[in-house]
Simulated assay, not measured.
Amino acid sequence: MSDVLEKTSSDLREIVSFTINGQGFCIDIGHVLEIRGWTPTTRLPHAPEFVTGLMNLRGTVLPVIDLSMRLGLGRAEPNPRHVIIIVKLRDSTVGFLVEAVSDILTVRPEEMKPTPDVASSLTKDFIEGVFARDDQLLRALDLKSIMPADQGAL
């Protein structure tokens, strides 16, 4: 009986849900180091459009990515209600600018539905799948595509 319980609990996945441009997205909580309130960033000359700038996190300088801009949803106009999700991906740490963090949810892998075929190939690259929760759809971001290895250092 305990083997069944262990298998079931290990199959569960925790995700952090958040909004970007009024739409629901999520990432695996295993990548999240912390969630911080918005603080202004320092612009980096010639950085990609989706990089809002650099921030100092307790002595570590890291890039902050405007996820709205990166996903093609337009540039975010940060205000004190915005938050930065600090994530660890491969060997780098990066901040993701989002409107708000909504919840931490526990889901089963089989709850994720594939990205519909009507989506562009770029959308399919960024979106791992979709979770249907209550009356909301949460798009699960594929962080490896959001931050490809060749742009990891920015």
Rank of each mutant, 00 (worst) to 15 (best):
T60L: 09
G74Y: 08
I15Y: 11
G22M: 03
D66F: 07
L62V: 11
R70W: 00
R43F: 09
E6W: 00
P80W: 07
P80Y: 00
I35F: 04
G37V: 10
I35Q: 05
L54P: 07
T60V: 08
D28Q: 12
K7Y: 04
P45Q: 08
E6L: 13
R43W: 06
T41R: 01
E14A: 13
L62F: 06
P78H: 03
N21M: 12
T52Q: 11
L33W: 02
S10A: 06
R13Y: 01
S17W: 06
G72N: 05
Q23K: 15
F25G: 04
V83H: 09
D11M: 14
G74E: 08
R13N: 09
T52G: 01
T52S: 12
R75S: 06
E34D: 08
G24R: 06
P40M: 04
G72W: 05
D28N: 12
T60C: 10
L5Q: 00
V16Q: 02
G22A: 00
D11A: 15
R58A: 09
P63Q: 11
I29D: 05
L67Q: 09
G24P: 03
N79T: 14
G22S: 15
S68L: 04
R36A: 10
I84L: 10
I65D: 10
T39L: 12
H46G: 05
V32F: 02
H46A: 06
I85P: 01
F18P: 02
R43T: 15
M55L: 13
R13W: 07
I84F: 02
I15G: 00
P40W: 00
